[in-house]
Amino acid sequence: MSELNIDASSNPLKPIEPKISRRSFVWAAGYMASVYGGVKWLSSRHQVDGIPWPLRKGLEFNEGFWGDAVNPDKPARTYSADRITATRLNETIGMVDDYDLASWKLSVEGVHGHDSPIELTIDDIKALPSFEMITEFCCIEGWSMIQRWKGVRLRDFMEKYPPSTVSGAAPDVQGKPADLVPYVGLTTPPTDDAPEGGYYVGLDMPSARHVQTMLCYEMNGEPLSVEHGAPLRLVIPVKYGIKNIKRIGRVIYTDRKPRDYWAEQGYDWFAGL
């Protein structure tokens, strides 16, 4: 079909063919211009947390689409001990070097029936039922590791220290989760340079109530090391590594979407897996 040599003088298509071509090529040129213009337009919109707003809307649309599918009672895959992989250390943002671990306390804000934050020691947390799991930790960069984690499930923690409710009624963490304030924020301990904590994450309530979301104090059978977030870090297999905050200083139950360190740098706030 390709080896046709059209002799222009004897071509019976002459009157019709250029018309079809011209019309189609005008379309093609218009299309190409609009693709170029569309991409230019998208990337030049005013930015919301480092992203042109239509693309930020895109991330929020995805959050709604996949967030509705979060089932707090459906565990992420767990592994047998022989599948555990090498431990990788990536970030220590928000953990200052001269922090006095001995004086660590966990401040919990927005606890039902408490107007001011309550303070807990590590022994208060270890007094809650312990939970152990071997799960995969997925970094948003693309690497992953399988580790053994031990700690207290956030949902058990919330049973004991429940969030306030929207209706003002007594909280029922398992029975009436929709009435709880919709977010949990977590930050590193406040410092002189960062009075709100140098690293901070926000969680939606279904993810916070997920059956494997854990306040972790032991990793691979050893007490949590300083660089992995001693004395208490978050492990949340339904979120990317960026949400697994180390050295938690504050837990905040809130009805306002909490600030999130990496969401402010252009990442997805939801960051769900």
């Binding site: 992203i51 895109g58 990496w262 252009g266 990442y267 997805d268």
Partner: peptide, 11 residues
């Protein structure tokens, strides 16, 4: 440029 890659990719 990971964040940039992610928001274009998922759009």
């Amino acid at each position: 440029r990971l964040a940039e890659g992610l928001y274009w990719h998922f759009f």
